[in-house]
Design a binder for these strands. Structure first.
Lengths: 189, 189
DNA sequence: AGCGCCATGTAATGCGTTACATGATTAT
DNA sequence: ATAATCATGTAACGCATTACATGGCGCT
């Protein structure tokens, strides 16, 4: 997977939590519900994952928590610090590598979902165009694999590979739709 | 993610290795190359993941290794045992849950890619039909989210959600193509 | 009175990541 | 000769998983 420390200072879960808290201050319980109830996020909703991750974010001063305890029954509301917002922005701005397209599509989409109000219009369009360009390189490569090895492969294996190709082609359709939507919005503002 | 021990006795990587070894006896190095060079498998190709995983498979008697050492420069060729083949079959035969469709599509496709020569035609078609049925439940659910929350969401977040929906719709197209291909093959034999 | 939800955690365990290490063989 | 590839590992580390634990609150 060739991922070095500089690529990922924090875990995906941490970034997702950071992004959600940035959108709207929330408690650990709120965040858990996002992962259990909403379709986005195939991330862990278990308290054993979330609370330690939040503690780490707090230790590293990316978020701060204020206990909203009316008596007992306390709720710790978390909000991002300036450093946290900066760290999030760094993550979102990471240039997208071809290997991200080949192996980490979910991470790319998770990042993109947090672009609003953090990255500007220019960066967003840049991301989408880079994504489109990457897909246009990756898809022919996959098709070549399919044409070369497909006839030799057993049926299910070949169908699974075709599934991958069709998935990427759907991504390509999406990205041109996304670019169109985004440009329309830019013009309106 | 609600995954209990009975759901996943071994890691995804372990099953992928087991499946590949079942297809064709291989050395650790061969298996690494599969993960670095072929498009299928977003799994780790690092020796620190693969060799320990192979050792565990050997300890648990799911594979056996014979050292093919012409002098030095040894190569340990691994092949599945009867127990290993059985364990693989158990994994492949697991009934697919709705949560698999919502959160673990990659795992489903990985499983499907190993169906050839392990599961029969009936199980394979059953899997595809269950997958299709699951998608037909999941897609309207996602669409509903999009229609309800979409207007309230910021643009990138909404586009990311749309990306998910389009992805699942591509899956639905694929599955009907796959069922068609598979039925054609069954008739021929 | 008891059940389910709110709300936050901890402990043991297993596994993947990263980085390091070793040595043989083939190509240039 | 020396770089790249073959081939297999180990050690420290971080993090997710699983299961367990605690207690208040609201409803019936």
């Amino acid at each position: 997977m060739n991922r070095t420390v500089s690529d990922m200072a924090y875990s995906l879960l941490s970034y997702a939590l950071l992004g959600l808290i940035q959108q709207k201050p929330a408690s650990g319980y709120d965040l858990r519900k996002v992962f259990t109830e909403t379709p986005l996020a195939s991330l862990s909703d278990s308290p054993g994952a979330i609370y330690p991750a939040l503690r780490r974010l707090e230790e590293r001063k990316l978020v701060t928590g204020i206990v909203e305890g009316s008596g007992l029954r306390q709720r710790k509301m978390l909000r991002v610090t300036a450093a946290g917002c900066d760290e999030l922005k760094q993550w979102l701005k990471k240039p997208l590598a071809q290997s991200d397209i080949a192996h980490r599509l979910e991470e790319l989409m998770l990042r993109f979902a947090f672009f609003d109000n953090v990255l500007g219009e220019e960066s967003t369009l840049q991301f989408l165009c880079a994504f489109e360009a990457g897909l246009k390189i990756h898809i022919p490569h996959l098709r070549k694999c399919l044409n070369q090895d497909g006839p030799k492969m057993a049926l299910c294996a070949r169908l699974a590979l075709e599934n991958g190709v069709l998935g990427y082609e759907a991504q390509l359709k999406w990205v041109s739709h996304a670019i169109h939507s985004y440009k329309k919005k830019v013009k309106q503002s």
